[in-house]
Simulated scan of single mutants.
Amino acid sequence: METKQTDIKLKTPIRCIVKLGGAAITCKNEFEKINEANLITVSSQLREAMMFGSSSGSVLEMDWSKRPGMAESLVKVDDYKEQLVLDFSSFVVIHGAGSFGHFQASTSGVHRGGLNQPLVKAGFVATRISVTSLNLEIVRALAREGIPSVAMSPFSCGWSTRERNIASADVSAVVEALDSGFVPVLHGDAVLDEALGCTILSGDVIISHLAAHLKPQFVVFLTDVFGVYDRPPAEPNAVLLREIAVREDGSWSVVNPTLEDSDKQVEISVASHDTTGGMVTKISEAAMIAKHGIDVYIVKAATEHSLTALSGKLRDKIPDDWLGTVIRHVS
């Protein structure tokens, strides 16, 4: 892996990297359909978490595009002239694809490589059209909350892999955006692969890479379930794993609740069209992040528990009534 950016210097230390799970912000079993209610709530919670002090007061939207049912953009320029620049703490947002991109990628086999095949090349283009269209809608949702969000696609930023492992991932553009007061919004993407020709770079791998280089105070995974369970959460008697400890070698075990076999592998189900590994990849990458001494919170999106996690209130003490999974490094 290229590591030209090992000595990254940010003007302001980054507070949090957030992963918006595809299943939380889209209707994963309905082709290219956004979960509008969840996205609106998540965007509002992100604004509240990012702002110093109270989140009350008027929101000055930054999405001036035409919307359905509107003849033109209703921008009141004078509202911005007397408005102080809001002081947002540094966040990076990364989102999954959900019902966008996965179907195109799995149908064409983009994740397996082979750009010399017409179907794969067409699928590569189709996948990127789909995921970037979702990225635009998320950027717009954040902008409507007054968050200065900017889209940053890994492919367009020159990220690439070799045998599905990151080979080149210059984060200088992300750093420049942060230092300029923007909130970068990245996403899982179809990228070039030095050995395979192409593959899918998942958002969970991206967040692990950025966390290692940007060193946020904490990382939050927003999902469609309350956290990590000892088996698929839809199964009877599924137990929420409240705390997972990660050791120096990257291995992990459940410390709360106490299980009969605390080192057993969690049983995970993955949708047939998911080309990124689902929760398996999420836990693995979360453990790698925790190895750097960065707390990771996995929590259900658009709930009071997600707002608690995003606000950084879990760093000192985990409330007994908080529902989610904490993944931490132990020496």
Rank of each mutant, 00 (worst) to 15 (best):
M1A: 06
K4W: 00
Q5T: 14
D7W: 05
L20F: 04
L20N: 02
T26E: 15
C27Y: 03
C27I: 15
E30P: 04
I40P: 00
S43V: 13
Q45G: 02
L46Y: 02
M51F: 05
S58K: 09
D63P: 04
Q83L: 09
L84R: 13
D87Q: 03
D87G: 08
F88E: 11
F88L: 07
A105H: 07
S106M: 09
S106C: 08
S108C: 08
L115Y: 00
L115Q: 06
V125Y: 00
T127G: 13
S133D: 13
N135C: 11
L142E: 05
P148Q: 01
V150F: 03
C157R: 12
T161H: 06
I166V: 14
S172P: 04
E176Y: 11
H187A: 10
D189S: 06
V191M: 07
C198R: 02
V246G: 06
E248Y: 03
D249C: 05
G250L: 02
E260C: 07
I268R: 10
A271Y: 06
G277E: 10
G277I: 09
G278Q: 08
E285C: 09
I289F: 04
A290H: 04
A301N: 09
A301V: 08
S306A: 15
T308R: 09
A309G: 14
D321W: 02
T325V: 10
V326C: 11
